[in-house]
Nucleic acid binder design. Structure first.
Length: 579
DNA sequence: GCCGTTTTCGGCCCGACTGTTTTCAGTCG
């Protein structure tokens, strides 16, 4: 059993125990256990199998035995019995915003609600509103939650599909009959969520490749299988499509299936204007334009060149002006992962992170970073074990000591992710903020303010001279929780006026600020910081998702503060502090 | 369920907000 599967089972046990009204500290122990299993540095399932789990904090006798059982038998009797008491679909209900274990338990015991379909029915029929503790507003909120979930049901975050896409791509590229393979579609365009994964291969033997594709270990169910294409569901529910074309067709098919549809329409129109018809198989000459120069097309780049355009990176293909820019040679040179020199906004065990300060520093160093910014939560974020003044001061001292140890080879910046209160004041006074190397200001409470009030609240924080950057501007959780109401253009103006950086939170759950706003921010002169918001050493790698989003927002390395080498970024932070 | 130790039970994380309620329960961060 994989560690992900084991962690999932522990999490589900926690949910079911909560439903049964178990001691909340017991359910928390299971949740903690799940987190440890997910993030443990080392092969925890191997250790579990060999009964070598002793001494891991948070894993006691009970969890140790359960992990051993899962690692050796592939299942857990305790869980099998527990889940047999409830319908399998019950877990869906926990995904509805506004519903917790108590309400779910009430719905289940009084009305036998065991699925979202049941839930919708009893809310609409008026039965739910009659349950003690429920009312019209509760029911309206639940229905809103259901609607949001339905609207986003087919969306997958990048953390859910990235490894899958890489694994399948690798398998395809390793196939003896495949000469070229790519992922196309919205994944290639760097969208923040995707609906499916589209793979493309060039081959002389499509039937062999397709036959092997549907037998990949990642494949759960075959939806369709033909001579040139196949569709399957992967085990995590993501639909994966494969198309096989010839080598000559490959660049055209790659371009076509990458989209976006709107971009394709514009490109085809441009081709027509030049007497060429473009489709997923190639160019054909139309009318009397027989003399058009049809350079041989080997790469996608050649298609654009034939049409008199610079190569347009996939992330830019949204028909938002990229074709005009390509025509005039004005496309930006997009940022690349390798351009990042360091990362700001990361957490440690001091608040809700899973790795210590030293572990985070070592991990960042191993990734080739020159510096690491720590920004643990501030005191108001109780749920995240936010730091009070004394603990923050102790952390600053710890960071200074570690830096002395690094002796210039690596640097840790002492920061804080300070809560923005409802009125726009910050969680620490200016004196303490001034002791820090930098400050990330974020909203973590009172999400439901009217837009004007929320905007004013955030602008007040931006105007605090100690605030270096603004954290996750809209608070959205992709496919789970909508953004709070906030006027982004006004936020951008305020950031520009105060020299405040805006974060591009690189967590696959957030990707916030959204890529659609970065061109405006860039025009106004606002700098971006691509922040992993890492809560573990592994989380540092989320910068990958952030870079994709930044590219989609037309950003170059000079727009992104953490592309600066150590000396220059120190200078930039000092300059901001002096303003 | 885990942890720690004044070695075996008692503590474990707090506050705001909302909606349902007449004093609080549930949810969220």
């Amino acid at each position: 059993m994989t560690r992900e599967a084991a962690a999932e089972i522990l999490n589900r046990i926690a949910l079911l125990l909560e439903l049964k009204g178990e001691n909340p500290f017991k359910t928390r122990a299971y949740k903690m256990g799940a987190e440890i299993v997910e993030s443990y540095a080392g092969d925890i399932m191997q250790l579990a199998a060999e009964e070598k789990l002793a001494g891991i904090k948070g894993i006691g006798d009970a969890l140790r035995d359960k992990l051993h059982e899962m690692a050796t038998t592939g299942k857990l009797e305790f869980y099998e019995k527990l889940k047999a008491e409830f319908p399998e679909t019950l877990f869906e209900l926990f995904e509805i915003s506004g519903l917790g274990p108590k309400k779910i338990a009430a719905l289940y015991t009084t009305l036998k609600v065991g699925s979202i379909a049941d839930l919708k029915r009893v809310c609409e029929s008026g039965e739910a509103a009659k349950i003690s503790g429920f009312g019209d507003k509760t029911v309206a909120k639940i229905l809103e939650g259901i609607a949001f979930r339905e609207e986003h049901a087919s969306e997958f975050r990048l953390d859910q599909v990235y490894a899958l896409a890489q694994n399948i791509l690798e398998a395809l590229r390793g196939h003896p009959d495949v000469s070229r393979a790519e992922v196309c579609g919205s994944f290639r365009r760097g969208k923040e969520v995707v609906h499916d994964l589209d793979f493309l291969v060039s081959t002389k033997h499509p039937e062999r490749v397709i036959g092997d594709f549907v037998k990949l270990p990642e494949v759960e169910k075959i939806i369709a299988q033909g001579g040139t294409k196949a569709s399957v569901y992967a085990s995590n529910g993501v639909q994966c499509d494969l198309r096989a074309v010839s080598s000559a067709e490959f660049p055209f098919a790659l371009n076509y299936f990458t989209g976006s549809k709107e971009h394709n329409v514009m490109v085809r129109q441009r081709a027509l204007d030049q007497g060429l018809s473009l489709n997923e198989y190639g160019f054909t000459v139309v009318g009397d334009h027989a003399s058009t120069d049809m350079a041989t097309v080997h790469e996608e780049r050649d298609i654009y060149r034939t049409l008199g355009l610079d190569y347009i990176e996939p992330e830019l293909r949204e028909n938002t002006g990229e074709i005009e820019a390509a025509e005039r040679g004005k496309l930006p040179r997009l940022i690349e992962l390798e351009n990042l020199r360091g990362v700001f906004h990361n957490h440690t065990t001091a608040s809700d992170g899973k790795a210590t300060l030293r572990e985070m520093a070592e991990a960042a160093r191993e990734l080739g970073m020159q510096y690491l910014g720590i920004a643990d939560h501030s005191k108001s974020s109780f749920q995240a074990n936010g730091l009070h003044e004394d603990r923050l001061r102790a952390q600053i001292a710890e960071i200074r000591a570690l830096n002395a140890e690094f002796d210039g080879h690596f640097h840790i910046f002492a920061g804080s992710e300070v809560d923005i209160h409802k009125d726009g004041t910050l969680d620490f006074d200016d004196g303490l903020l001034a002791e820090l190397d930098y400050v990330v200001a974020s909203v973590h409470s009172v999400f439901n303010l009217p837009e004007a009030e929320m905007t004013a609240r955030i602008i007040r924080a931006i105007e605090n001279p100690h605030v270096t950057m603004l954290g996750h501007v809209t608070g959205r959780l992709l496919a789970q929780r909508p953004a709070y109401a906030v006027n982004i253009p006004k936020i951008i103006d305020a950031a520009a006026a105060n020299g405040t950086i805006i974060e591009l939170n690189a967590s696959a759950w957030r990707l916030d600020m959204d890529w659609r706003w970065w061109r405006l921010a860039k025009e106004k002169g606002v700098k971006c910081s691509i922040n992993p918001d890492a809560h573990s050493t592994h989380g540092l790698q989320d910068v990958l998702f952030g870079v994709r989003a930044a590219r989609k927002g037309w950003l170059t390395r000079s727009d992104v503060i953490n592309c600066l080498p150590l000396g220059e970024v120190e200078e930039a932070l000092r300059a901001k502090a002096k303003r």
